[in-house]
Simulated scan of single mutants.
Amino acid sequence: MHPDVSADIADLDNTLKSVEAVVDIDELRRRIRELEDQAASPDLWDDQEHAQQVTSQLSYAQGELRRLEELRQRVDDLPVMYELAEAEEGVAAQEATTEADDERTALRAEIELLEVRTLLSGEYDQREALVTIRSGAGGIDAADWAEMLMRMYIRWAEKHKYSVEVYDTSYAEEAGIKSATFAVKAPYMYGTLSVEQGTHRLVRISPFDNQARRQTSFAEVEVLPVVETTDSIDIPETELRVDVFRSSGPGGQSVNTTDSAVRITHLPTGIVVSCQNEKSQLQNKAAAMRVLQAKLLERKRHEERAEMDALKSESGSSWGNQMRSYVLHPYQMVKDLRTEVEVNNPSTVLDGEIDRFIEAGIRWRKSETV
């Protein structure tokens, strides 16, 4: 085996060992056994919300363990692949070596992606994520752009088999959406997706302009941690105004014949949230309250950090107005303005291939806070 290949395999092995140490595989196995015991309880589904948390956490933990065990097996098998290639001759040897090289490249990408997870150590990083997308400047194009971004994140979640629950979608009159709020329901989603927060800019030939002129559109992405029962966010009923209304879909088409949609206004702060995607008014109110609690928790965190922010400049870690540009015309490029990561195939990015941007964003954030 070539010395460079041996050194690279040793480096992969050491990187994976460091990930295994941070994750603590023995503790992960113990946690899985504990969750399996809870999931086997006959009264588990007496509390549906708790049951969903248990089954979701169990599925995630089992997936993480399986992923680590498979990576460990593949790294251990890599030297054997090269030994078998050396035992071959001619074309067969070349093909076997190429196969081993391809496996080594794939392993490096997967291990580095897993290594990024070990950088998520913030107070709320292990929470599920609540994502809100709002159209900005750019009229109908901006509304269409907001919907494209929503699809991008949902496709990304689907590729990773993360569950998504849409709480509210406010459709624009002609096309696209004014805003949408959805939860990505897997551990560490807040820490992972929080680097996506900021203003996303799209440059393209407008499909809505009969003169085919170039249009620049903006949409804002907000990412909050999902509130858990341990969070001390107490909201007195007297501080709330609850309005009910009829749910509607694109173009004003009625999707519900009863007034089941719920809008909640938090009177002291003026924060307004709504949910119209559940079947009953009670379900919509409960979902809207979860969104409101997340927003109030984020507000509380900002207030607690305000004094520290005044003493310490965070110019390096601020999101700024624009954090990523997506250019479809006159050339093809997606570029992150913080990390300088660039991709020349926007269609794959808009179809959910954003791991490279997320990984670089997490590493960038970590370097900015050191």
Rank of each mutant, 00 (worst) to 15 (best):
E103D: 13
M148N: 02
E95K: 14
D144R: 02
I154P: 01
A142G: 03
R134V: 01
R104N: 12
L119N: 07
Y171W: 15
V131D: 05
A106R: 12
R104Q: 15
Y190T: 08
W145Y: 11
I177S: 01
I177W: 04
R104Y: 01
M150D: 04
T169Q: 04
M150L: 13
G139W: 03
A157K: 03
E110A: 13
S170F: 11
E123V: 10
L149F: 10
I154Y: 00
M150P: 07
K161N: 12
R108H: 01
R108W: 01
G176Y: 05
K161E: 13
T181L: 07
E115A: 15
A143D: 03
M152F: 05
G122K: 00
E95T: 13
A146M: 09
E158Q: 15
S163H: 14
K178T: 07
A109T: 09
F182C: 09
A143Y: 02
T132I: 04
R104I: 05
Q126S: 15
Y124R: 08
G176P: 04
F182Y: 10
E99P: 00
M148L: 15
L130T: 03
A143G: 11
G122H: 04
A172P: 07
L120I: 08
R108G: 01
I133T: 04
Y162P: 01
W156P: 03
Y153K: 01
L120A: 08
T118Q: 02
L119S: 09
V116C: 07
Q126E: 09
R108P: 02
I133C: 02
L120Q: 08
S135Y: 07
R155F: 02
E95F: 14
L114C: 06
E115G: 14
A175N: 10
A106Y: 00
K161V: 05
A106S: 15
L113A: 05
Y162T: 06
E158K: 13
Y167W: 12
E158N: 13
T169R: 05
I154V: 15
D102F: 05
R127Y: 07
D101L: 09
E115M: 10
A157R: 03
D102H: 06
A137L: 14
A157D: 05
T169G: 04
A96F: 10
M189R: 08
G136D: 10
S170P: 01
S179L: 07
G122F: 00
V164C: 09
L149Y: 09
T97H: 08
T132P: 00
Q126R: 14
M152Q: 04
A186V: 12
R108F: 00
A106T: 12
D168F: 12
T105I: 12
I133E: 09
K185I: 15
Y171H: 15
Y124V: 07
L120V: 11
E95S: 14
E174M: 09
E95N: 14
I177F: 03
W145H: 05
G139H: 03
E99T: 14
A175K: 11
D141A: 04
L113D: 00
I177L: 08
A100W: 02
E158D: 15
Y124F: 14
G139N: 10
K161D: 12
G122I: 00
T98Y: 03
V116G: 06
K178N: 14
D141Y: 02
G138V: 02
W156Q: 00
D125A: 12
L113T: 06
